[in-house]
Design a protein around this nucleic acid. Structure first.
Length: 203
DNA sequence: TCAATGATGGGCT
DNA sequence: GCCCATCATTGAA
């Protein structure tokens, strides 16, 4: 059903995931989101990665086979979803930061609790997960195995629209050019430097 | 066992 | 633009 090739390092896969579609089917209905913004995280070589200090119970999924979903809780409130890439045994994942709701907008709006609509429904990793209805129970889910959460190819994205920039909100290695997004897309999060970012972080 | 930290988002000033 | 909620995970004592 899809030929998405995830068996490569995150920074190679991240731009290819732009335009891909994440779908979550529940008894309430189906919500699909076309990805508009991603960030690449690797393992031991990436100070900003959860896997930087090696394998732990939380980040174990990142070390697993490509195509699985790594979900973690941020700041006690928000869920963030990653798509695991690369080789089994080596940490590598792509954070899905933003997307455009292409199916089930009513349900997505309901989950977000009214007020929000349009591009804001899935802008930012936490919002995206809420719109999709993704929580910790989906940690480790195989996105290529069918329901409930699946990743599939969407409409092709022209490479000319893809932009590369610094990662958002990370306190380390924030200037790595590992963030990929679609130029001019209203669903892309505004760049924000982490409050805790070291003034002179490397490279 | 304890204290610090964070790949955020929303609301207030 | 700044501040704050809120908790699992982590690393140190």
């Amino acid at each position: 059903m899809n030929v998405l090739d995830l068996a490569h390092p995150a920074e190679e896969v991240a731009p290819k995931l732009l335009g891909a579609v994440l779908t979550h089917e529940t008894s309430e209905g189906t919500v699909s989101i076309a990805i508009t913004e991603t960030e690449a995280y690797s393992g031991a070589a990436d100070p900003a990665s959860h896997a930087y200090r090696g394998r732990t119970p939380r980040n174990a999924v990142m070390f697993g086979p490509a195509g699985h979903m790594y979900v973690y809780r941020s700041h006690g409130l928000h869920w963030c979803a990653n798509i695991v890439t690369g080789t089994d045994g080596i940490a590598s994942a792509v954070l899905v930061r933003a997307g455009r709701v292409v199916e089930g907008e009513d349900l997505a709006r309901e989950r977000r609790g009214a007020k929000v609509e349009g591009p804001r429904l899935a802008r930012g990793p936490g919002n995206l997960c809420r719109a999709l209805g993704i929580t910790a129970e989906h940690n480790g889910t195989d996105l290529l195995a069918g329901a409930p959460v699946t990743l599939s190819e969407g409409e092709p994205v022209s490479e000319g629209l893809i932009r590369i920039g610094p990662r958002v909100g990370v306190s380390k290695a924030h200037d790595w050019q590992h963030r990929f997004y679609l130029a001019g897309d209203p669903t892309v999060s505004a760049y924000r430097l982490s409050p805790r970012a070291k003034p002179s972080a490397g490279a």
